[in-house]
Amino acid sequence: MTTPYLSAAEPVWERPEPRTRSAPVPLSRAKIAATAIRLADEHGLDGLSVRKIAKELGVGPMRLYDYVVNRSELLDLMVDAVYARIAAADRPSDWRAAIVAIARLTRVAALEHEWFADLLGGRPHLGPNALAVGESTAAALSRAPGVRDIADLQRAAGTLSAFLIGALRREVTERRTARSTGTDERAWQASLGPYLTRQLETGRYPTIARLVIDGADLEPEEDFDRNLTTVLDGITGRPAPR
């Protein structure tokens, strides 16, 4: 049974580790999270279960419930372990360079751990490492020229978050689709090329035609950086009159 995210019990990050038991396999929340991450990387979140983690660790499933009470807490530990690498990286002093660094590291994390992208945009990530990344992000955004008060900061943070969630989920979805179909994006585009050409030649879609014919064909990393630049340019600008 899954308990509410915010309950009267201490959050998993603040509960002390269970007392060491005389067992052949020592456990810790960090060890459980690392094993769960490895399994999720291989099989996705659908293939993740307490029983599989316990088998991988060589212990009985009930031992794991001394450390995490449900699947939600397990996911919380996994997510925060991924955020740890982002939180540990050095931050440039310039606000914009700091945001770019955080965004790029988040992209790397999502591509290394595709399940991480599935969990972006759901319930808030409130582990200590996630909070550290959130603090660095908010602090950098608060120094942007177009951010003058808390309302501006909320809008800037929301816009950046929406961009990251959408961009990373799209890229991960495209990678998964390519693997499942055995077709990369260029091959897919080539297979539909004649159809698309016929449709564009009708003249009914002039703006789409400009995008397809004249638009830059960028690699995913270049596309991510360019769109991130557009978002940050917007944050530095003045809001439209109300």
Rank of each mutant, 00 (worst) to 15 (best):
P4W: 08
Y5G: 02
S7Y: 11
A8D: 14
V12T: 06
V12Y: 04
W13H: 12
E14W: 14
E14D: 15
E14L: 15
P16Q: 09
P16G: 11
E17I: 08
P18C: 07
T20G: 07
A23Y: 04
P24N: 03
K31S: 12
K31H: 13
K31T: 15
I32P: 06
T35V: 12
A40N: 05
D41M: 04
H43R: 15
S49H: 03
R51K: 13
K52D: 04
I53K: 04
A54M: 07
E56W: 11
E56A: 15
G58C: 10
G60W: 00
P61G: 00
M62G: 10
R63T: 12
D66A: 14
V68W: 07
V68Q: 02
V69T: 15
V69K: 12
E73G: 08
L75H: 14
D76R: 13
L77R: 10
L77E: 07
V82R: 07
R85M: 14
A88Q: 15
S93M: 10
D94E: 10
W95R: 02
I102R: 02
I102D: 00
A103I: 00
R107M: 08
A109C: 10
A110E: 00
L111A: 03
L111Y: 03
E112K: 08
E112C: 04
H113M: 09
H113Y: 12
W115K: 01
F116H: 02
F116T: 01
F116Y: 07
L120S: 02
L120K: 05
G122V: 04
P124W: 03
H125C: 07
G127S: 03
P128N: 06
P128H: 06
N129M: 13
L131P: 00
L131E: 07
T137C: 02
L141D: 01
A144I: 06
P145D: 10
V147Q: 02
R148N: 06
D149Q: 08
I150W: 11
A151N: 11
D152M: 11
R155H: 10
R155L: 11
A156N: 02
A156G: 00
G158E: 05
L164T: 03
G166I: 04
G166S: 14
G166W: 05
A167S: 11
R170I: 05
E171I: 02
V172H: 00
E174P: 03
R175H: 07
R176T: 13
R176M: 15
T177M: 15
T177N: 12
A178N: 04
T181A: 13
T181F: 09
E185I: 15
R186A: 15
R186P: 00
R186W: 05
A190P: 07
S191M: 12
L192M: 10
L192A: 11
G193M: 12
G193S: 15
T197L: 12
R198L: 08
R198S: 09
L200Y: 01
E201V: 12
G203Q: 06
T207C: 05
A209M: 08
V212F: 05
I213A: 13
I213S: 14
D214N: 13
D214M: 14
G215P: 03
G215T: 06
A216H: 09
A216N: 11
P220T: 04
E221K: 03
E222G: 01
D225K: 01
N227T: 03
T230W: 13
V231K: 08
L232R: 00
L232N: 00
I235P: 03
I235C: 05
G237H: 14
P239W: 15
P239G: 10
P241S: 10
R242H: 02
R242C: 05
